[in-house]
Design a protein around this nucleic acid. Structure first.
Length: 260
DNA sequence: CTTAATGTTCCCCA
DNA sequence: TTGGGGAACATTAA
């Protein structure tokens, strides 16, 4: 469910409700979502006040009056305000003004205390400049699609938005990063900014079950040009959208508009 | 029954 | 150190 636009939407829907609130108690029930000592984690957050809720890459950063709680939604994670507990509720935060639930059927998501992972993230795609982006691309000899999915290279892109940005900039997913021309690299940089910005305006993509903290769906999935459109006509040239596997991920592109 | 799914990490090999 | 390939993690839906 969560790439940068979805996580940003969750943070924006969460922040006004959580800022200044106190966590009265917490309960965690999954050894996958909360690896290590779950009781200890619950004890650590109990009694803490929430100062702010922000985003870094695909991570939701909850700054407390002492320490930081970081949530990664994995593939199917949801943070829900005042919802009902379900079969896949693995985290419950009782607040002074309500309840915050963490739901995650596949349990690929994580709730962690001061994780080191966040420090290893690459630059934010909406903050990095065109020149620096091009320089970073030039230094890598890997295929551009897996490189853009690498969170240490750039933080926040996932399978949907990489495919969409490569289509928008006319770059083949198997192109070697270091061999992309300066002008096309600049186009890719702009395409990433454009697709992320528009997706945030549309509150993310709800393909299967993504919703924000208030349970509302996004609608950017209606504006996808290649992702999930295998066999359908390319919006630019009409030829059928292809689907291949790159780095174990389904990869959608137009063979005519994205030459190698 | 098989396959794929908005993600990440770990292991092996070149 | 970099890069490729594969498996693993849990669950559901097609």
């Amino acid at each position: 469910m969560p790439e940068l636009p979805e996580v940003e939407t969750v943070v924006r829907s969460l922040a006004p409700h959580l800022a200044g609130r106190k966590i009265l108690s917490a309960e965690f029930t999954s050894k996958f979502v909360t690896p290590g000592d779950r009781k200890k984690l619950a004890k650590r957050v109990a009694g803490r006040s929430i100062e702010k809720v922000t985003r870094r890459g695909k991570f939701i950063v909850i700054s407390l009056d002492s320490g930081t709680l970081v949530v990664h939604l994995g593939m199917t994670g949801k943070l829900l305000l005042d919802g009902d507990r379900g079969a896949h509720t693995h985290g419950v935060f009782t607040l002074d003004n309500g309840v915050l639930l963490y739901d995650d059927p596949r349990q690929f998501g994580r709730i962690e205390w001061n994780p080191t992972r966040v420090a290893k993230l690459g630059p934010e795609p909406l903050e990095i400049g065109s020149e620096e982006f091009r320089a970073r691309l030039r230094r890598r000899n890997s295929k551009v699609k897996p490189l853009l999915l690498n969170q240490a290279f750039l933080a926040g892109l996932g399978n949907i938005y990489v495919d969409e940005a490569l289509f928008a900039s006319g770059i083949h997913p198997l192109a070697i990063a270091s061999r992309i021309s300066a002008s096309r690299a600049a186009r890719l940089h702009q395409a990433i900014r454009d697709v992320l910005t528009l997706a945030i305006e549309h509150r993310g993509s709800s393909i299967s079950d993504y919703v924000d903290a208030n349970g509302e769906r996004g609608d950017f999935q209606l504006m996808h040009h290649v992702y999930g459109r295998e066999g359908e006509a390319c919006v630019k040239c009409g030829s059928p959208i292809q689907k291949i596997v790159v780095g174990q991920r389904g990869t959608h592109f137009c063979a005519k508009c994205q030459r190698r």
